[in-house]
Amino acid sequence: MNAHVVYATITGNNEDIADIISDQLKKHDIEVIETEISQTDAAELQDADICVVCPYTYDEGALPEEGMDFYDDLQDLDLTGKIYGVAGSGDVFYGDDFNKAVDEYSEAFKSAQATQGAENVKIDLEPMEDDVETLAKFTDALVKAAKK
């Protein structure tokens, strides 16, 4: 079984989240590819059993500019049978726009007919110890869903 973890980051927080998820997946003996969103063609997700995106939300709810092609292309894919999860870092300072990109990417995966394997995870700023536990549970749920 394999997974592709894609991240977009300005501060490094989402790369940290992607690293934690990748490490957790490897503990389940999952082969993992981790890439930065601007260097990733959305079609590459078709080769993975588990697909994860770790986006940031910019300003007042905007998606990462460098990931717009990926986002648009993702919605046009057929990811039937693929398990997906979305986890991202944001800043609660933005109120209703906090981590909006996480929900937007989740909807894009649904448009691509992928199956949600874990609840969306929204982390305030950098991942702390309790967030690492949350991401471990997130990863466990993804693997469990993929093994069904």
Rank of each mutant, 00 (worst) to 15 (best):
E44R: 02
L63S: 01
A3D: 07
G95K: 07
Y58N: 02
T35R: 10
H4P: 02
E15C: 08
D91V: 04
L79F: 13
G85F: 05
I83V: 15
T80Q: 14
A101K: 00
D19W: 05
D73K: 10
V53L: 09
Y84N: 14
G61Q: 05
E60A: 06
N120T: 10
D103Y: 05
D140L: 06
Y7V: 14
T115S: 13
I21M: 06
K137T: 11
L125M: 13
D96R: 13
G61C: 04
E133S: 13
K110D: 15
S38E: 15
D16E: 11
A108D: 09
G81E: 05
T40M: 11
A18T: 02
D69W: 00
K100I: 12
A114Y: 07
D130S: 03
S89C: 00
D73A: 12
E15R: 08
L77T: 05
T40K: 08
G85D: 07
D91K: 02
D97N: 13
Y105P: 01
A62N: 07
F93T: 12
V143D: 15
T35G: 14
T40N: 12
D16R: 03
V86D: 04
G88Q: 00
I10G: 07
E44L: 12
E44K: 08
E34G: 01
E104W: 00
E133I: 15
E31D: 13
A101Q: 03
I17C: 01
Y7S: 14
D131Y: 02
D72N: 11
F98L: 04
T115Y: 09
